[in-house]
């Protein structure tokens, strides 16, 4: 069963088994504007929860993307690196950044639901 959760750093996390796919939310891409470059973590890298592990650059500025949960990077999105604009056009599907193998799903359940994330965005 696939579930999607969100973070206050404007990332989405989709869990399939013990693999979490991570990207930036549609709200985030809209706020960033035209995305022109991404820097993605290499497979095999162990990341801590909250660790800056990817970078997204718009015309105006660079922003960090954080690991929403601890885990090991299994894959990054090479097609996004080749065409960063996909993060604008398809932020919450084809514009994924990297996949993590999680140690467990306890942290995942503590992330924001879609409804809670929408409430959070509206409060900004």
């Amino acid at each position: 069963m696939t579930e999607i959760r969100y973070t206050k750093d404007h990332e989405w996390v989709r869990l399939d088994g013990d693999i979490a796919t991570v990207g930036i939310t549609d709200h985030a891409q809209s706020a960033l504007g035209d995305i022109v470059f991404v820097e993605l973590p290499e497979p095999g890298r162990a990341v801590a929860e909250g660790e800056a592990c990817a970078v997204v650059e718009s015309v105006k500025a660079a922003s960090d993307v954080y690991a929403p949960l601890a885990g090991t990077v299994t894959e990054n999105n090479a097609s996004l690196a080749a065409d960063p604009g996909v993060a604008n056009q398809d932020a919450e599907a084809g514009g994924w950044f990297f996949k993590l193998r999680l140690a467990g799903r306890a942290g995942f359940d503590a992330l924001l639901s879609a409804a809670d994330y929408q409430t959070f965005v509206q409060s900004l």
Binding site: G33, D34, V36, V59
Partner: peptide, 20 residues
């Protein structure tokens, strides 16, 4: 427009997108 503070003014930084 997305408005930002610049030199004390609220100014449009972009409408459809900077590149376009």
């Amino acid at each position: 427009a997305r408005m930002v503070g610049f030199a004390g003014y609220a100014m449009p930084v972009q409408y459809d997108g900077i590149i376009a």
